[in-house]
Amino acid sequence: MIDPHQTTDGELVLELPTDIRTIEHAVQYVIGRCPSCAEEARRLNLNFRVGLTEALANAMLYGNSRDPSKRVLVEIAFLQECIEARVTDQGDGFDPASVPDPTTPENLSKPCGRGLFLMRKLCDEVKYNAQGNQVTLVLRLESGGLEGGVQA
């Protein structure tokens, strides 16, 4: 269902349908491909898990507007010093600067608007392309890197 494959340069690529039920499995699959993550366990299981989950949810709910005919592309690079996750949807994109701070008193009681905020708080870098339909998350590895690269 999540259709994973590995590119020749070691990137892990998943192509997901716009189906929120696939998110948990996809995120678990990605984290499970990391071969030596004991020292990074908390940052992977909290920071990276939250960041990737929110990116996928945003791509499906807002980017692809829940359209089941659209897909979400996930490209993961396990580098020596960081993990990069690039999530691309097939929507028109949005302006990330337009998303309000969910922690202000007027927004605190609103039921939505925390996904991007959590990505920014928990990942070391969050970058959007110009169109706003692709986000790249970067999680730096404090232990000095992962050994062995990606497990296919």
């Binding site: 609103k110 039921p111 925390r114 959590l118």
Partner: peptide, 16 residues
Amino acid sequence: GYIDSSGLGVLVSLSK
């Protein structure tokens, strides 16, 4: 194990 922003949102909505 985990709550995402949608889970947080549903708690806010229910509380209200």
